[in-house]
C-alpha cells in the first residue's frame, strides 16, 4: 500500500492504494469516475484510453504508481462545462457511437490524434484507431466523426 497523488481532470486526487493497482482501477474504483472503461485484459481494445500529460495512454497498461504527479484527463474532463469538446460534438452529429462502450476511448484517442495532426487523412484515422476496437459501428461513422472533429478543431481535410 502507499499513498498516490495525481491530477485528475484538474483536481488533485490522493488515495491509499496497493502497489499493483492499475491506473484504470485507480480512476474507476478509487476515485469513482466510471467513464473510462475496461474491455479486455490484454491491452488491445482501447476502451480505457485517457490522456496522461496530454498523451493518450491505455490506462489498463500502467500502474497508478507510475502516474504519480501526472496530469490526467479522462472522458469526464474533456467537455468545457456543458459545452462539448468539438470531437464529442462530431461523434454526436455523425452517429459515431451506438452502445457507447468503446466511445470514451475512441474519443480520447481521436482527440490526441488530431491534436498531433490536424489535417489527418481517412487512412491515417483508420491506422490511428487500430488500437481501439468497436463492435457496433463498423467504424464507418467513427471515421466520419473524427474527420468532422478534426475540421472543427481547425484541420483542413
Amino acid at each position: 500500500m502507499g499513498e498516490i497523488s495525481l491530477k485528475l481532470n484538474g483536481e488533485l486526487e490522493t488515495r491509499d492504494v496497493a502497489d499493483n493497482t492499475l491506473l484504470v482501477d485507480f480512476i474507476r474504483e478509487h476515485v469513482g469516475l466510471t467513464g473510462t472503461h475496461v474491455g479486455c485484459d490484454t491491452s488491445q481494445c482501447g476502451a480505457c484510453v485517457i490522456h496522461l500529460d496530454g498523451v493518450s495512454v491505455k490506462a489498463c497498461t500502467i500502474l497508478a504508481k507510475q502516474a504519480v504527479g501526472a496530469d490526467i484527463t479522462t472522458i469526464e474532463g474533456l467537455a468545457d462545462g456543458d459545452e462539448l469538446h468539438p470531437m464529442q460534438e462530431a461523434f454526436h452529429e455523425n452517429h459515431g457511437l451506438q452502445c457507447g462502450f468503446c466511445t470514451p476511448g475512441m474519443v480520447m484517442s481521436a482527440v490526441e490524434m488530431v491534436n498531433k495532426n490536424k489535417d489527418i487523412s481517412e487512412d491515417e484515422i483508420r491506422e490511428g484507431l487500430e488500437g481501439n476496437i468497436c463492435r457496433c459501428t463498423g467504424y464507418h461513422n467513427i471515421v466520419q466523426s473524427v474527420k468532422a472533429g478534426a475540421a472543427k478543431m481547425g484541420g483542413k481535410n
Binding site: T74, I75, E76, L78, L84, H92, E93, P104, V107
Partner: peptide
C-alpha cells in the same frame, strides 16, 4: 441525432460494472 448520445460521450453512461 440520438438523444442518448450525450451521456455516453461525456462518460456518464451507467453500465452494470
Amino acid at each position: 441525432r440520438r438523444t442518448e448520445d450525450k451521456k455516453f460521450l461525456t462518460g456518464k453512461g451507467k453500465y452494470t460494472d
